[in-house]
Computed example of a mutant assay.
Amino acid sequence: MGEINIYGIYVPILLIQAILAYVLLNLLMKAMNRWVEQDWIALPGIFYLCVYVVILGGVHWLFL
């Protein structure tokens, strides 16, 4: 990996990827809330965690 120097502060690239994945997750959560309300998703916390890990993997793959 690496880091980016922003005004003398080193920011890891993985942190930037994690923030981007979180923003994408929030957009998906708004779309999938209807499924949670209809009980199509049994454990939404675990489901959203798994979706976040998949999104983070995809964002990391795009950065490579």
Rank of each mutant, 00 (worst) to 15 (best):
M1S: 13
G2E: 08
G2D: 08
E3D: 08
I4Q: 10
I4G: 01
N5S: 14
N5E: 15
I6R: 11
Y7V: 06
Y7Q: 13
G8V: 07
G8P: 00
G8Y: 01
G8L: 04
I9D: 08
I9T: 15
I9S: 12
I9F: 09
I9P: 00
Y10A: 12
V11P: 01
V11G: 03
V11W: 01
P12N: 05
P12E: 00
P12I: 07
P12W: 01
I13V: 14
I13M: 05
I13W: 01
L15W: 11
L15D: 13
L15C: 02
I16G: 03
I16Y: 00
Q17D: 06
Q17G: 07
Q17N: 11
Q17C: 05
A18M: 10
A18W: 02
I19V: 12
I19W: 01
L20R: 10
A21R: 07
A21L: 02
A21P: 02
Y22D: 06
Y22G: 08
Y22S: 10
V23C: 03
V23R: 11
V23Q: 07
L25N: 07
L25P: 02
L25S: 06
N26D: 10
N26E: 15
L28H: 06
L28V: 11
M29P: 00
M29T: 13
K30L: 15
K30S: 10
K30I: 08
M32I: 15
M32F: 15
N33H: 04
N33D: 10
V36C: 11
V36R: 08
V36A: 14
E37C: 01
E37Q: 12
E37S: 09
E37Y: 12
Q38N: 14
Q38W: 10
D39G: 08
D39K: 14
L43P: 00
P44M: 04
P44Q: 01
P44L: 01
G45P: 00
I46H: 13
I46Q: 14
F47D: 01
Y48G: 03
Y48M: 09
Y48K: 04
Y48Q: 06
L49K: 10
L49V: 10
L49T: 15
V51F: 07
Y52N: 03
V53K: 04
V53T: 12
V54Q: 05
I55Q: 03
G57C: 04
V59R: 04
V59I: 13
H60R: 03
W61G: 00
W61I: 05
W61V: 09
L62A: 14
L62M: 12
L62S: 12
F63Q: 04
F63Y: 09
F63W: 11
F63V: 09
F63R: 04
F63E: 00
L64E: 10
L64N: 07
L64C: 03
